[in-house]
Design a protein around this nucleic acid. Structure first.
Lengths: 212, 212
DNA sequence: GTCTATATCCCGATAGAC
DNA sequence: GTCTATCGGGATATAGAC
């Protein structure tokens, strides 16, 4: 995650592959950008912050990426795909309850393991998704497809008759909450790792909600 | 909501009450600030945007508020209190399921009626709550108090034995999702008003989750 | 590849006329 | 109370030495 394709301006002619140091610096910049963009949003982030977090000077940073916009775009581009992967993995021919539980569990693991990515996404959507809006049709078609699968399970009595879209929203909301509102969760719980309890609670909630 | 106390610099001597035009301009600024801060976060917002949205010149805006920080602080100050009001209203001596359902319903109404406030809060927490962190102890004590009430209901078998803190997080996450991720919800549903369906779904989910 | 220096623009805030 | 004009600082990005 967060390691996009190499396409720096000095390499437009595609003459050379990236060296080890180039790879290292580019990934350091992307990681630093993820830190800063996910906390402050696009406009609130500054190249000085990103450069300092990456351990580079600002001009040197702009040697690897042509602009602030490009760093942000690079981070976003792979994000939606990764974010939807757990949903894509949900299969119509599995056991319905187990499939949905496994999906929710994968999504919660994503929040635990990639909280910065979750917050980057949250920031983007909060701002009206100006740089992600074009990807929403793809999002909708996948969600509609999986919602149809869930509705099919409901029709044949495998699970309760619930609105599949709002079930998906529920899983998104609950799992992402632990990454996006991390400071609030920790302030309330005074707990190092809320995820084990969160997983147990979510499983209870989903089993009850889905039972035929 | 969003109408704080009058305290402009020209009135430090407390000699005069605010005139009608002062009230009108101050509330226009706060509303415009809510629009802009909730979308871009503190650092991403600019006074030019706020001034234009309020229909004032920038110096004129700064006649009413001494600084950008002050506008933001004014907006935040009343927010946490309002945001926790639905939880505060939950009473230990009511019917447990009805009390929790009513709480969740009030919280969902808040998302529907005050989406900008929800996004302002989300932005603040996403950024690590730098201007709200001092209020977190109050938040924790209220949540702990109500969590104890819920746990009491569970102990005597009125509701299922669930983790009360994570139940509260679930209600926060699900209700706020519809305000904070509004553009995504609308992109997926292609629907003018998702709230009626959301309320129905949430009631189903909570009744199932809470049933003893 | 990396640096110093700088161009250019925008932001928050102020001065002062009216 | 509201405006035009502007200051000082900080932002993105570039130039050019090494």
């Amino acid at each position: 995650m967060a390691s996009g394709n190499f396409c720096a301006k000095d390499n437009l002619n595609m003459s050379k592959p990236p060296t080890r140091i180039q790879k290292k610096n580019r990934s350091a910049i992307l990681s630093a950008g993820l830190d800063v963009f996910s906390q402050f949003g696009f406009r609130g982030a500054t190249l000085d912050q990103i450069a300092e977090a990456a351990g580079l000077s600002k001009p040197n940073l702009l040697y690897y990426f042509p602009s602030k916009e490009e760093i942000h775009q690079q981070l976003l581009s792979g994000l939606l795909h990764t974010w939807l992967d757990p949903l894509r993995t949900m299969k119509a021919d599995g056991d319905p309850i187990q499939e949905i539980l496994a999906y929710a569990r994968r999504k919660l693991d994503l929040s635990r393991d990639y909280p910065r990515e979750s917050r980057l996404f949250a920031n983007e959507v909060l701002q009206g998704a100006p740089r992600l809006g074009e990807s929403f049709p793809d999002l909708k078609s996948l969600v509609d497809e999986k919602a149809a699968v869930i509705q099919g399970w409901a029709k044949v009595g495998k699970i309760a008759e619930i609105d599949p879209h709002h079930l998906i929203f529920l899983i998104w909301a609950q799992t992402q909450h632990y990454a996006d509102f991390d400071v609030q969760v920790r302030a309330v719980l005074e707990c190092d790792d809320p995820y084990p309890q969160a997983a147990t609670f979510m499983e209870h909630m989903l089993r009850r909600t889905l039972a035929p």
